[in-house]
Amino acid sequence: MVSHIESSTLLEAIAIMTDWRRVHPFVCTATVWEPEYSSPQRYRAHIDPGNSSFNAENCTDHSTLAYDDSTREMTVGDNRALRTSNMIAWEPFAVRLAFPLSLPIWGRRHDAYTIIGTDSHPDSIELHLATGPRREPTGTMRVDRARRITTSLRLPTLAIEYTDFEPARSL
């Protein structure tokens, strides 16, 4: 069982994740693994955390996931809808790492996971996650120190990873 939490490392990771609105817009490849799909889903994602907006195109079927915060309009494939303010964790998995407060890792009532350990690396911080009363390690999350963004989440039922970063314009 992982039980080591270096408080300064944990505080650094939390500071990075809670400062998500200051992340400059970027484009990346977002890979999502979910049990119901036989293979990973890959997206080319243009994410603008400061404007809470995104556009992600599925690399296989070219369907689009998009949100424009200025209009509150969401697009999923050919469907469009207005986002309401009471939606919790509504961002699609392909873009959710850019909005870390929507991740289920904070130990809140609606979260499935909590942070139980940290590992500090020169370029990143790895957080160890647990679920349930026994607090056995069941997942990890990586926070990139230079990019100041979460770059991977690995859970038993979901994995998300960002790679191939490029700077981008605002949405």
Rank of each mutant, 00 (worst) to 15 (best):
T71V: 08
M1F: 11
V27D: 02
W20E: 01
S39T: 14
G107W: 11
P137W: 00
A146S: 12
P40W: 05
A30S: 15
S102N: 15
G50M: 04
E161G: 09
F54Y: 15
H4V: 14
R72W: 04
H46R: 12
Y162A: 02
V76M: 08
T60C: 08
V143P: 02
L101S: 10
L11Y: 10
R169G: 10
I115W: 08
H110G: 06
E91D: 03
V143T: 02
G77S: 10
N79G: 07
T64E: 11
I149K: 04
T18W: 08
F93N: 11
A15H: 14
T60F: 13
T150H: 00
I149G: 01
V23G: 01
P104D: 12
T157N: 13
C59G: 03
A112Y: 11
L82M: 09
N55D: 11
L155W: 06
A15N: 15
H4E: 14
V23S: 02
S152P: 00
C59S: 15
F26M: 03
A94E: 10
G50Y: 02
T157E: 13
A30V: 06
R169A: 15
T75C: 05
S152L: 01
Q41G: 00
N51W: 04
D111K: 04
A56R: 02
T18S: 13
Q41L: 15
